[in-house]
Design a protein around this nucleic acid. Structure first.
Length: 496
RNA sequence: GCCCCCAUCGUCUAGUGGACUAGGACAUCGCCCUUUCAAGGCGGUGACGGGGAUUCGAAUUCCCCUGGGGGCACCA
């Protein structure tokens, strides 16, 4: 492998809610790059919007990362050489850097009120002009700005975008050169009136201070990237500018950018629905990245080993639940029965608590697991698939007992003979059951299809189940005989 | 409205001028296996948005159009 310099990358979410798949995929790509290069993955909380802050969101973010196995080397809880990693705790730095810019004439105080700005934008919209700060305070004489500032008038700090009719160009690893005309960039706010920095300032300052080498983020940031580039230059940091990698956004099923509005669910919701973190990781990695023309199932280690920024595509990808479900099934089948039992326990326990199923236990579940493993796509499907192993009474429609090709009377007789034959069995094993029941089928001249179907319903209460004889073996002699009796009774009542 | 980005099967993608009658995966359809359902095996349907240009030769390069997406806050 080529010797790579260790990268320092960051996942920088704002704590405004639980991260969803599109969001956490950014974390995954950053993490993969850090691990691939042997560098550091940094978690930085960008809580510079006091109004949008959500209680507990940071914990939710960390829990999501932990569940997916995306461990961070620096950040909340673990600390690091560039602490603190929460922007609200770094306010003095931003203020200081903003002041530097004001001092050197690259930024200025702006006293325009929210109302005035709103009116300005409304007027621009009416004139069908792009909404953009009109530069009122930029044109103010220095003395007046100083006087009003010293007088305590509320203000923000705006970056003085050089409007020289030039283009601001940056290199994006995914798309190549991207350029904007400087007159299309407005004098953006870098420090708000409450003293908090905006994303633009905080992000540039911290990335520089924390020696971030690669900024891997969603493509929704492309349009603000020139602002960041301008800031790097204004600060004199252009030599150490990070490599920009704008990943394509994830689209919802309706092809809109994945968000609450477009079918995005919190990552932790996937845990609740019985997805395996390794399946979700595999799946998300393939959303916008590919190893070659055939690899679909690729485990975490191989992902780390083979991941590369160069193979990130430029087209946005729609989140496709069906493929995730398939992939999750693949990962479920790869589990050992013991592992799967462990993973299934919380889902069955939750079900048990609701239904009071009398026969549920881990050891019974352990026996059931081999019978349902290849039938599961999600862990939360297990109760619906296996409930009849754990209950006493079965509730089902008697007509199911007489499938096509087996009239009710014949079904009742067959079940009666079956009960007889089976209760005489010395061993209650799949093999013994199969021998006995097949022998009987031959003797009675019954086709196995309808006949086995009939027994299946009697024993499981449904027309679809895992293989009959193994199922009966696990359910046990006592409950099987009782269920056969109940089925015969049901048919008698139906006839009467 | 303005700016930016993108464009291969329904979906995720491979493809960097000839190896492409465009490959793989999910989904879908059919067959096989089979006591049902799965799993598995085999096979089928299915795509280079349109138009120009460059070239002996374009999915691949360039331009235009169209379509889609993103952005345009004292939000990130």
């Amino acid at each position: 492998m080529v010797q790579l310099t260790p990268a320092r990358v960051r996942y920088a979410p704002s704590p405004t809610g639980l991260p969803h798949v599109g969001n956490i995929r950014t974390a995954l790509f950053n993490w993969l790059w850090a691990r691939h290069t042997g560098g550091q993955f940094i978690l930085r909380i960008e809580d510079t919007d006091v109004a949008r802050r959500v209680e507990g969101a940071t914990e939710g973010i960390m829990e999501s990362l932990r569940w997916l196995g995306l461990d961070w080397d620096e950040g909340p809880l673990v600390g690091g050489p560039y602490a603190p990693y929460v922007q609200s705790e770094r306010l003095p730095r931003y203020e200081q850097e903003a002041a530097r810019l004001v001092g050197s004439g690259r930024a200025y105080f702006c006293f325009c009120s929210e109302e005035r700005l709103e009116a300005m934008r409304a007027a621009q919209a009416r004139r069908r002009e792009p909404p953009r700060y009109d530069g009122t305070c930029r044109r103010l004489p220095d003395e007046e700005r100083k006087r009003r500032k010293d007088g305590g008038e509320p203000c923000v700090v705006r970056f003085k975008v050089p409007h020289r009719g030039e283009t601001v160009t940056f290199h994006d690893l995914v798309r190549g050169e991207i350029s904007f005309r400087d007159e299309d960039i407005e004098d953006f706010v870098i420090l708000k009136s409450d003293g908090y920095p905006t994303y633009h300032l905080a992000n540039v300052v911290d990335d520089h201070l924390m020696s971030i080498t690669h900024v891997i983020r969603g493509e929704e940031w492309i349009s603000s990237c020139p602002k960041h580039v301008l800031l790097y230059h204004a600060f004199g940091w252009q030599r150490e500018m990070p490599v920009f990698v704008h990943m394509p956004v994830t689209l919802g099923p309706d092809k809109g950018k994945l968000s609450k509005r477009h079918g995005a669910e919190p990552v932790l919701e996937y845990r609740r629905q019985g997805y395996l973190p390794e399946a979700l990781v595999n799946f998300m990695a393939l959303l916008g990245w590919s190893l070659d023309d055939k690899t679909e199932i690729i485990g975490r280690e191989d992902l780390v080993k083979h991941f590369s920024l160069e193979r990130i595509g430029a087209t946005s990808a729609a989140f496709n639940r069906e493929k995730l479900d398939w992939m999750n099934g693949v990962y479920i089948r790869q589990l050992s029965p013991e592992e799967l039992t462990d993973k299934l326990m919380p889902f069955l326990e939750e079900w048990q608590a609701r239904t009071r199923a009398p026969h549920f236990s881990r050891s019974l579940l352990r026996q059931v697991v081999p019978l349902i493993q290849e039938r599961l796509r999600r862990l939360d499907e297990a109760p619906a698939l296996a409930d009849f192993f754990f209950v006493d009474e079965l509730a089902y429609d008697a007509v199911l007992l007489a499938p096509r090709g087996l009239p009710p009377d014949a079904a009742r007789d067959a079940l009666g003979r079956t009960r007889e034959a089976v209760s005489a069995l010395r061993e209650w094993t799949p093999e013994a059951l199969e021998g006995g029941i097949r022998g009987l089928a031959l003797e009675l001249g019954l086709k196995t299809g309808p006949y086995f179907g009939c027994i299946r319903v009697a024993v499981t209460g449904r027309a679809v189940s895992p293989p009959l004889f193994q199922t009966m073996a696990v359910i046990g002699r006592g409950r099987c005989l009782a269920r056969l009796d109940a089925a015969i009774e049901k048919l008698k009542q139906g006839a009467a």
